[in-house]
Design a protein around this nucleic acid. Sequence first.
DNA 1: CGAGATACCGATACTCAGTATCAATGAACC
DNA 2: GGTTCATTGATACTGAGTATCGGTATCTCG
Lengths: 134, 134
Amino acid sequence: MAVLEDRGHRSTAPRRAIIRFLQGKQEGFTAEEIGRELPDVGRATIFRTVKLLLKAGVICRLNLPDGAPKYSLSRVEHHHHTVCVRCGNVGEFRAATIERLMRAIGGDIPGEAVGHRIELHIICNQCLLEADSR
Amino acid sequence: MAVLEDRGHRSTAPRRAIIRFLQGKQEGFTAEEIGRELPDVGRATIFRTVKLLLKAGVICRLNLPDGAPKYSLSRVEHHHHTVCVRCGNVGEFRAATIERLMRAIGGDIPGEAVGHRIELHIICNQCLLEADSR
DNA sequence: CGAGATACCGATACTCAGTATCAATGAACC
DNA sequence: GGTTCATTGATACTGAGTATCGGTATCTCG
């Protein structure tokens, strides 16, 4: 909640509103969605705040398989995302094995490895159910 | 070369020009870059052709860490990308270990795994050199 | 080869995510 | 309470990609 103050930013009404809105969010969200939910907050401010939260590590950005941008709360520090190729819902997962493996691969590749990003494309349970019942 | 004809598309001058241009490309490229190189080809046609080549599997789309879109030739069927966080150049790699691991993780996660995408963020050798010499 | 159907073209106008600008406001700190 | 300066919203812009549409070129078939 005091993520921004901790980083030397001011606590303003729009910022509080955005953070409060995101607090409940289980699924990923788009910037446009925030705007729809908080019509009193200017568009620019939404993007500015999203950027701050990104830098603070509170949320993270990912792309759906078609490239559409989406954000999600970072519940755990280092993690990766599952994204449903049907409905676009995103989830998180961690796997220590991956981290070890990526470090090993980083050593085999020219240049210095500084990080990675992994997206697991799935069809989520709900979409599977809907497909069945059709 | 006859990728498009093989899929029932027509062989037209703009398409041939784009494919010929991409043939040489080692690094990743953007749509805008194609347009700069082939000013006689309309913008819409570039995006249309890029989309066809994507569907045909000839090229693939990826995002730089900041979300900027980029394309790269698919030299091998299933592969992943390294992207330099300094200069944005992209490379390819494969690692059978990853594929096995991702399949295992897919089994542990609710829903049906259908694919994945992995980006390894690096600082490429050239950027390392430049950083040293400064 | 000639002709017709239609896939494809370029120009243009649009959408969508995100950024730049700028005058007005309101946190923070004294 | 007053001052400073980060922040705001409005607005205009950029960059990637899509929709539309009248005109053109490719493919196919006779």
